[in-house]
Write a protein that binds this DNA or RNA. Structure first.
Length: 457
DNA sequence: CTAGGGTTAG
């Protein structure tokens, strides 16, 4: 009885340490426990597996299976579900499938969560057909789908560009007696907002309330983000105020949403207040909130402070990602240190970031703004992927350099490749041509733009 | 274990 209770306590400790990213502490507690005769059980290892896969790597988590067998503890379906979730988090779809097979070979029966996670994995790596096959397997294996199954399905369809199918599935499930959860509404509200279908999002929000749910922190964050996205900053801040008044507790997501929006429109002081408040409320920084902080410093031109945070990130055992580097590269460009930015791009390549296209866009823009437009064009030619940012920025900068004919050529090749380009960039070229006396060219360009739009509508 | 946050053009 005592040792059972102690193992439970041990497991609670392990879970707590995993939560605050102190795996070394978790490990030493296990050593101490064993010395005191308290043996870890399956739950202990399952918790550790989850911790390692979140904080270290999938491989580290997987290697715990060996430690388990050395300790003669058998993995359960939960062990495998944790590993599959870890593989999914890292987009390792083949690993997920392998684990699924391994589980079957060991005679462990997958449960609905094994299937849910596998389905989520396929959606995450952009394989909706395979995900749907898993959904059919769920029905075929007579595993009763749970609400999460439908949530994953609806979310996955949306994320893979099948929003109308997701909405149809949602309605048809409702007709068959499915009671949507709050999370189901949150998924749909977020997707409708992102698609700019604000009326439909608002109807969904009303339906959420009519079903007896109270919007949670995530619902509010989603709507706040939607306001900021459509540049209605004051309305977004009002929603924040409403959250405050109603006594909601804010998490890191909410703080980063509001701070990110304020940084974008140059309201750094307010952004700083919110990030400070986040710290004061005891919320640990994760990589995304560190990236927000770095963005904040860059926007102020405090590059040294930004680089200091880089050390802090590594100090707490996190690893900088593509966002971190891109934010810094943009920051360097914005203060005119293009050479530094280019060095940092090389650094990214060395570290194995294959095609840092956003960072390259930043440098192209930086070169253009620094008056090195030919250099920018050279870089443009060498790029593997060019998107509407590349074109919009270059066309604007060409116009600033009065190179309207070159701008016009780029503008058309962008549209003819089926990409969008900023309206303001289009206006800049047409007006530029007109003002420099090339009225005929301006008229022709207008016509060609219209044609390109008709072809690629 | 499924939902919301972090990067670029104007």
């Amino acid at each position: 009885m005592v040792s059972k209770l102690s193992t439970r306590l041990l497991n609670i400790c392990i879970a707590s340490y995993c939560k605050v990213r102190q795996l070394d502490r978790a490990e030493s507690i296990i050593c101490d426990a064993i010395r005191l005769g308290v043996l870890p059980n399956t739950v202990t290892y399952n918790t550790l597996i989850d911790g390692y896969s979140r904080l270290v790597s999938f491989e580290a988590a997987y290697s715990l299976l060996h430690r388990m067998s050395e300790a003669s503890i058998n993995p359960t379906v939960i062990t495998y579900n944790s590993l599959i979730a870890g593989a999914t988090r890292n987009c390792l779809v083949l690993k997920s499938l392998e684990l699924f097979d391994e589980m079957l070979q060991r005679g462990i029966a997958p449960d609905i969560w094994s299937f849910n996670t596998l389905m989520h994995c396929f959606f995450k790596v952009g394989k909706p057909e395979e995900a749907y096959q898993v959904f059919r397997d769920i029905i075929h294996h007579d595993l009763s789908p749970c609400p999460a199954t439908f949530n994953i399905m609806i979310n996955g369809l949306c994320k893979n560009g099948y929003m109308s199918n997701a909405l149809m599935l949602f309605r048809s499930l409702q007709r068959h007696g499915f009671v949507p959860q709050l999370i189901t509404y949150n998924i749909l509200i977020n997707e409708l907002c992102k698609a700019g279908r604000l009326k439909a999002a608002s109807r969904m929000l009303k339906e959420l309330a009519a079903s007896g749910y109270v919007p949670n922190c995530i619902t509010y964050t989603t709507i706040m983000k939607c306001c900021f996205r459509s540049r209605r900053f004051e309305q977004g801040l009002e929603i924040w105020q409403e959250m405050c008044d109603k006594g909601y507790t804010f998490d890191g997501f909410a703080y980063c949403t509001i701070a990110g929006a304020l940084i974008k429109c140059g309201r750094i002081n307010e952004a700083t207040c919110y990030m400070d408040q986040m710290r004061r409320n005891g919320i640990e920084h994760d990589l995304a909130s560190y990236n927000t902080l770095i963005h904040m410093y860059c926007k102020e031109g405090k590059l040294e402070a930004a680089y200091e945070l880089l050390d802090e990130i590594e100090g707490v055992g996190l690893e900088c990602d593509e966002y971190t580097h891109t934010i810094l590269i943009d920051g360097l460009c914005k203060i005119g240190n293009i050479e530094g930015a280019q060095r940092h791009i090389k650094h990214m390549n060395v570290m194995g970031f294959s095609s840092p296209s956003v960072a390259l866009n930043c440098v192209v823009d930086g070169l253009g703004k620094a008056g090195k437009i030919d250099h920018a064009l050279q870089m443009f030619e060498s790029m593997e992927t060019r998107d509407s940012f590349t074109y919009s920025s270059l066309v604007h900068n060409l116009c600033n350099a009065r190179r309207y004919r070159c701008a016009s050529k780029l503008l058309l090749s962008c549209l003819n490749n089926g990409m969008k380009i900023l309206r303001s960039a289009q206006r800049a070229v047409i007006n530029g041509l007109g003002h420099s006396g090339f009225h005929k060219e301006a008229r022709q360009l207008k016509l060609k733009i219209r044609l390109a739009r008709m072809v690629h509508c």
